[in-house]
């Protein structure tokens, strides 16, 4: 069963299209939802939480029809907002247990789980302190803890590393990694920090202007581009580039490597060019792309999408 499946899912706000004709089947796992401002990420998340009725089309999350089963859906979905949303006068344990109880957990289970998840996020020692005394990183961890306190099979995490220093970011990513490896748990990360996505997510959904651009496994999207090769050489790079040009190969040199369009006549010409330039080819392989590059290629306009 797909984690999320939608058929022509559309949401309009008057004349503004929030999401347009989205047909996608997303498998369980760790999913990145990326897109620039106004791409439709927030609308998609609202629909996934069962907070919005679609204008047209249908969608199922965890096998449940959105719009029809909002309450049942939110029992099985955890949500971590991007912005600060904690109640400062409560203690960490009190707050997380409170959120657990609002999700329907009996009191004893809610407190038991709250202790568990606060230990998981590394706040065991600080759990009885008031949230107002917490640092930004600690608050971010409490937000994560409240999203998983009721043991949801799906957690929607909105910019989980936003506002964290490099150490805090690395710790949060480690937590998310540990969480993603838990059996039966899926994560959807809405983010514009593309490097976060590369190491963590195994499925990528790119939206722009409310439309789906890409929905595919991250490895598949990032790995092979059969139309482009990467070559690393030992020798004079400028001589090699010149030799490639003489052989009619279009090249795009970078600092330590050169990227070329796949030669029509096969790879032999590359070795001939290297021999002419008195260079050794140390690596020749299909080009891989970072999500950032992919994003820039797919989404026209601003270089990286801000939060929508």
């Amino acid at each position: 069963m797909d984690l999320i499946r939608s058929e022509s899912l559309t949401k309009r706000y008057g004349s503004v299209v929030g999401l347009s004709d989205l047909t996608v089947a997303i498998p369980a796992g760790t999913i990145a939802l990326v897109g620039p401002n106004g791409a439709g990420k927030s609308t998609f998340l609202r629909l996934l939480l069962g907070l919005l009725q679609p204008t047209a089309g249908t969608a199922q999350v965890l096998g449940m029809e959105i719009g029809l089963h909002g309450i049942a859906l939110r029992e099985r979905v955890g949500y971590m907002p991007e912005h600060d949303c904690l109640i400062p006068e409560m203690t960490g344990i009190g707050f997380v247990a409170y959120m657990g109880r609002l999700s329907g957990l009996p009191k004893s289970d809610a407190f038991g789980r709250a202790h568990d998840v606060l230990q998981f996020v590394g706040l065991r020692e600080e759990r009885y302190r008031k949230i107002s005394e917490y640092s930004v990183g600690m608050r971010q961890r409490v937000k994560l803890a409240q999203a998983i306190v009721h043991d949801p099979p799906l957690a929607l995490l909105d910019e989980p590393t936003a506002g964290l220093d490099p150490t805090g970011r690395a710790e949060m990513l480690a937590l998310l990694k540990a969480l993603s490896q838990t059996k039966g748990r899926s994560l959807v990360l809405s983010t514009h920090l593309l490097p976060d996505v590369e190491g963590l997510c195994d499925y990528l959904v790119v939206l722009n202007d409310g439309r789906l651009l890409v929905a595919a496994p991250t490895k598949e999207v990032l790995s092979v581009d059969s139309a482009e090769f990467v070559i690393r050489i030992k020798g004079d790079m400028s001589a090699f580039v010149g030799s490639l040009q003489r052989h009619g190969v279009v090249s795009r040199p970078a600092r330590h490597e050169v990227r070329i369009d796949r030669p029509a006549g096969g790879e032999r010409v590359l070795f001939e060019a290297a021999a002419e330039a008195d260079c050794q080819i140390r690596y020749l392989g299909p080009a891989t792309h970072s999500i950032e590059e992919l994003f820039l290629r797919l989404v026209p306009g601003p270089p990286t999408g801000a939060k929508s």
Binding site: G104, L105, P106, D116, F120, I148, H150, D151, L175, T182
Partner: peptide, 15 residues
Amino acid sequence: TISAPRYELVGTSRE
């Protein structure tokens, strides 16, 4: 500390 929490709530009835 990163240690997996005990996810044993599948059978817990919701209020």
